[in-house]
Amino acid sequence: MSVDKDTVRRIARLARLALEEERVEPMVNELNGIFAWVEQLGEVDVEGVEPMTSVVAQTLKMREDKVTAGGDAAAIIANAPVSEDNFFVVPKVVE
């Protein structure tokens, strides 16, 4: 499988990663080099093999459904590049 310029533009959009037009072609080549190499996984017969979901056998831990943290808006907002009255600020999203 290999990717073309349109595919690279589409996945960059999906990943919300701006990609300048002159970077598209080199990225196509880099990704195709890597995808050509991972193609070898196709040689292996994986019929009936379960995909790995956890490397260590353990049951999912449950905890009581109660609030253990919170009420600390100032600490949460402290690293925001732009904030106002303990809110995050973004460009207008609704006309």
């Binding site: 991972v38 996984l41 196709g42 292996v44 994986v46 093999v49 379960e50 995909p51 790995m52 979901t53």
Partner: peptide, 8 residues
């Protein structure tokens, strides 16, 4: 497929 390889 990669996760199956991981199992193997």
């Amino acid at each position: 497929r990669a996760q199956k390889l991981r199992t193997l």
